[in-house]
Simulated scan of single mutants.
Amino acid sequence: MRVLVAGGSGVLGRRLVPQLVERGHTVTATTTKAEKVAMIEAMGAEGVVMDGLDAASVGRAVASAEPEAIIHQMTAINPVHAGKPDIKHPDRWFAGTNRLRVEGTDHLLAAAQAQGVTRFLAQGYASWNGLREGGWVKTEEDPLDPFTGTATEPVMAAMKHVEDAVTGYGGTVLRYGALYGPGATDDQVEMVRRRQYPLVGRAQGYSSWIHLDDAASATVLALELGARGVYDIVDDDPAPANEWLPYLAEVAGAKPPLRVPVWIARIAAGEQAVMMMTEGRGFSNAKAKRELGWRLRYPSWRQGFAEGLS
Rank of each mutant, 00 (worst) to 15 (best):
P18R: 04
E22P: 03
T26Q: 13
T28P: 03
T31K: 15
K33A: 14
K36Y: 07
E41Q: 12
A42L: 06
V48Y: 04
M50T: 09
A55R: 14
V58Y: 01
V58W: 04
A61E: 09
A61Q: 10
A63T: 10
S64E: 13
P67F: 03
E68D: 14
P79E: 05
G83D: 07
P85M: 15
D86N: 14
H89G: 00
P90L: 10
G96S: 14
D106Y: 08
A112M: 04
A114F: 00
V117K: 08
G135H: 02
G135P: 00
F147I: 06
T150Y: 00
T150R: 00
E153G: 02
A158S: 15
H161P: 15
E163Q: 11
E163T: 08
G168A: 08
G181V: 13
A184I: 10
P198E: 15
G201T: 08
S207H: 01
I210W: 00
D214R: 15
A222F: 15
L225N: 10
G226D: 03
D237W: 15
N242Q: 07
K255V: 12
R259V: 05
A273C: 04
M275N: 09
E279N: 06
G282P: 06
K289D: 02
R290N: 04
R297Q: 13
Y298D: 12
Y298I: 13
Q303T: 10
G304T: 12
G304K: 08
G304F: 04
A306P: 05
G308W: 07
S310Y: 15
